[in-house]
Nucleic acid binder design. Structure first.
Ligand SMILES: [Mn+2]
Ligand SMILES: [Mn+2]
Ligand SMILES: [Zn+2]
Ligand SMILES: [Zn+2]
Lengths: 133, 133
DNA sequence: AGTATTATTGCAAATTAGTTGCAATATGTC
DNA sequence: GACATATTGCAACTAATTTGCAATAATACT
């Protein structure tokens, strides 16, 4: 389902800032500042506070999710049910790559052996990218 | 090896703040503020800036490691080679539980199929603890 | 389309986590 | 104990994020 219907469906307004923010997001995790800069380069003026507010809404709507990669700030990606992946973060240059590991179903595994009910997980790998080794 | 020898070995001074900070750490991840408060309750006065500086040193020494659980701040745990575990974080009450998953060796798996050289990983599960379900 | 209602935005100020400069202090060495 | 200097406390600072509020824009209703 697309963002316009999702917003309408839940009674939220379809605004330019919201639509433009969604457009710059992908499966590559961007910080709020980077999203803001990306919009700036497209000559789209959205206040940083509004970027934060939109992201907060999108996270609540499960359209976007946030991860923290040890940098002291959050990064945001589009939720994509068909592309379950994790990240490889280079300790040296900071490059972020994707890894798919669809062969293991952690959540189920945990839900079987523990009374904790898993909704989702974050798995991040830290090391050296090919160039930095 | 204990912290006193480790500090001496690397030419760092064995100071009261450092020793006391290590004492309040465990396998339960605490924020800098919480560490500071824990010391306060023991009537040990260590400046928050010193807490941050000690933690930074301990992380560099690989005695402590930090994780981020989506709260916008770091949490610190003692490194324990014999107890490889991950966390279950309750979305409702914020409780943090440990999970062991020693049966899978992700890092090796990734290193086999990718050119990225993994050093370590963070795996955190988010959901509802027993009480909050 | 024009107007009314109110959610959302921009802007500035505030807050929180973490960092830094520097003088005072404590640790390790002789 | 005295000396050299690493570490600390304190205050000021920065970066990320949040918040209050008036201005604006999106939907609902003629
Ligand atoms: Mn990604
Ligand atoms: Mn733990
Ligand atoms: Zn790299
Ligand atoms: Zn709970």
């Amino acid at each position: 389902m697309n963002i316009v219907s999702l917003l309408k469906e839940k009674g939220f307004r379809v605004t330019k800032p919201r639509l433009e923010i969604i457009k710059v997001l992908s499966n590559y995790p961007l910080s709020a500042e980077e999203i803001h800069d990306a919009l700036d380069k497209k000559n789209i003026r959205v206040d940083l506070a509004s970027v934060y507010r939109s992201l907060e809404l999108f996270v609540k709507m499960s359209v976007v999710y946030s991860i923290e990669l040890g940098e002291g700030k959050k990064r945001y990606e589009l939720v994509n049910k068909n592309y379950h992946h994790h990240h490889l973060i280079c300790n040296k240059c900071g490059t972020i790559e994707d890894v798919e590991m669809n062969e293991i179903n952690f959540d189920k595994k945990i839900n079987e052996k523990s009374k904790f009910l898993i909704d989702h997980h974050h798995l991040e790998f830290f090391g050296l990218c090919q160039d930095c080794q």
